[in-house]
Amino acid sequence: MARRILITSGKGGVGKTTICVNLGKSLAKLNKKVLLIDLDFGLNNLDVVMSVENKIVYDIFDVVEGKCRIEQAIIEDFDNENLFILPTNRTYCPTTNSKDICEIVNAVDNKYDYILIDCPAGMDEGFVRGVNICNEAIVVVTPHISSVRDADKIIVKLEEFGVNLAGLIINRARGDLILQGDMLGINTIVDYLALPLYGILPEDDEVGVQVLVGGNLNKSSQSFTAYKMLARRIAFGESGIFDCTARYKGFIGGIRQKLRKHV
């Protein structure tokens, strides 16, 4: 049976879709079979970040409407035979109920090790759909008051629904600003949200490049390392968490901080 993980946040724009894709790629590299599902109906972007927007023939709604089998709607990643996506491809939000989506996911559950569910922002229908098909949730937050606030609300909602809260990912963390005290600290966020910290992902221009041109993260990038550690933590329970402040410590780190601040 697959681990069905809902990637949620409450607030939009914190990086759920990007995390879904890059975490999926990292898990797939660990020989885990991964299916990504886009539940952001109408405002879908999983296909774009995965660079499969031109490859969609059928989507999840075609499966719901009986126009195709689910296998026909699932697209394999061009780069990794362990990674698949079940996209959505409508410019509107069709009416559908959780039961139909649940049945689709149940039908393929035993074929995958992980099913990562890209949850839409907010706490309404889309979120409820995600809650109904997942068996655990990872909450994504950025080190900003508005994001932590919305994550706090979404955690309460997840608890009300009885969802297993796997942990917290802090995305877009600027190590230099955290060290200078110009950004909320990691410990502060973890204390207030009272969830175990699963991973820290740094603010990294490489991610923007990846989304712009499609493809994979540069292996020498901080993000690549951070995602690798996150995937190993999820898959094998390893304790390593990326330290976004490490490169800004010490003499060289101090120079990097100053360059970042003033250039």
Binding site: I145, V148, R149, D182, Y192
Partner: peptide, 21 residues
């Protein structure tokens, strides 16, 4: 060591979370 901005930020966060609850 926290600086003044971080302290202000944390106080605002705590205030917001408390008001919401």
């Amino acid at each position: 060591m926290k600086n003044e901005l971080q302290i202000i930020g944390e106080k605002r966060l705590k205030n917001v979370l408390t008001i919401d609850k």
